[in-house]
């Protein structure tokens, strides 16, 4: 039974619900009948070949992309054209991008404080204290006054994670967070994500890092050509993949 639109649910219901979601880019049907439910504290890893629509799907969750059919409900708030709904959802959902997208004209601290001050109305001193707290959480407090261009890729991504955490989101979305990093920096970012998971953060992660997936994910999803082909508990997913396409994909990705 779908949740009534006007009722704001506390964490008793599912965190994210997508029901019969379709999306087109022009004529191209990029998301076909997506149905998924994510509960509080769940960690989902989404994998699949490029062009399968994984990025588009999670970007629909914070309305960076608009869906044309179906319903998306995040923490009891339905995503429609209503701006207030969109803003509330975006405050609850944090996103980490493949390209980091740090603000180059601001220092690390200013990057972290920007949204709390302007979107939540937090006093500056409080925001800076919170910023330092999260910088320590991601193990780079000494970089507080540097500019993003002075940091390595791994450090920048950790700052990006801290930046999202400063808004105290209930859900964190990761869109291939380590794909743009040099190999030696991938571990430091994954470690931060693992510790986040251990604290009980609801996470949806798009990644090719299967080792990470096995450690952290409660459930795995395989997407291809705009559909969710297979979805299962992690152990079952890796040991007994049901679909031929899943098997093919896993064999390609696990072989090296």
């Amino acid at each position: 039974m779908p949740t009534p639109i006007n009722q704001v649910q506390e964490s008793s219901g599912p965190m994210i619900q997508m029901m019969g979601v379709h999306k087109w880019f022009g004529e191209f049907h990029v998301l076909k009948d997506i149905n998924l439910t994510v509960h509080k504290g769940e960690r989902i890893v989404v994998c699949g070949p490029s062009g399968s629509g994984k990025s588009t799907m999670i970007r629909c969750m914070n309305r960076l992309e608009e869906h044309q059919r179906g319903r998306i409900i995040v923490d009891g708030i339905e995503l429609t054209n209503d701006l207030t709904h969109i803003e509330r959802v975006r405050r609850e959902v944090g996103m980490v991008f493949q390209q980091f997208n740090l603000f180059p004209h601001l220092t690390v601290t200013e990057n972290l404080c920007l949204a709390p001050i302007w979107a939540r109305g937090m006093p500056r001193v409080e925001a800076e204290q919170a910023a330092m707290k999260y910088l320590e959480r991601v193990h780079i407090p000494e970089q507080a006054h540097k500019y993003p261009s002075q940091l390595s890729g791994g450090q920048q991504q950790r700052v990006a994670i801290a930046r999202s955490l400063c808004m105290n989101p209930k859900i964190m979305l990761f869109d291939e967070p380590t794909s743009a990093l040099d190999p030696e920096m991938i571990k430091e970012v994954l470690d931060v994500m693992i510790s986040l998971a251990e604290e009980g953060m609801t996470m949806i992660v798009i990644t090719h890092e299967m080792g990470f997936a096995r450690t952290v994910a409660d459930r795995m999803m395989f997407m291809d050509s705009g559909e969710i082909i297979e979805e299962n508990v992690t152990s079952e997913f890796f040991n007994n993949p049901k679909s031929e396409r899943t098997k093919l994909f896993l064999s390609q990705i696990l072989s090296h």
């Binding site: 379709h22 022009g26 004529e27 076909k32 044309q68 050509s225 679909s243 031929e244």
Partner: peptide
């Protein structure tokens, strides 16, 4: 889950294209 053929593409809603 039964093995399905690739789901066919549906046409987009009329008011969004053309």
């Amino acid at each position: 889950m039964p093995e399905t053929m690739r789901r066919p593409d549906l046409p987009p809603p009329v008011t969004t294209v053309g």
